[in-house]
């Protein structure tokens, strides 16, 4: 399978990966590549700021339609800062749990209602 590189700065036209809407642009490109059976290298080169809101839409929502194993094999990241790695890991772990147990949120609402 061929590799394709997605450059985040170029995709969103900004060195700040902060807005959810910009994350969506990155997400759509990854999906395009996956649909075309390409492996993706997602480059964070020159990114200066990241929010979890951006990473949730860019990467977190991949777990909705793709299996963990598929993502592991077909998506690699490069040039991620140390703080970016920490944020990305949390976003990914949260996404895996969210799609595995969609009822968890509803249960947490029920729990707090009983407080």
């Amino acid at each position: 399978m061929e590799n394709t590189t997605i450059n985040i700065v170029n995709t969103i036209g900004d060195v700040y990966g902060v807005e959810a809407e910009d994350g969506q642009k990155v997400f759509e490109l990854i999906i395009k590549a996956f649909t075309d059976k390409k492996k993706v290298i997602l480059s964070f080169q020159n990114i200066e700021m990241l929010t979890t809101a951006f990473l949730n839409t860019a990467i977190g929502q991949l777990y909705k339609d793709y299996q963990e194993e598929y993502i592991k094999v077909n998506l690699k990241v490069s040039d991620v800062s140390e703080s970016g790695k920490v944020a990305l890991k949390r976003v990914v772990d949260t996404a895996k749990l969210y799609y595995k147990d969609p009822e968890a949120l509803k249960r947490s609402i029920d729990e707090i209602s009983e407080d």
């Binding site: 949730n56 977190g60 777990y63 949260t94 996404a95 969210y98 949120l105």
Partner: peptide
């Protein structure tokens, strides 16, 4: 992990 977004994880 508490979010009101539908279909997207979040709450961080």
């Amino acid at each position: 992990k508490r979010t009101t977004k539908e279909g997207i994880s979040g709450g961080l």
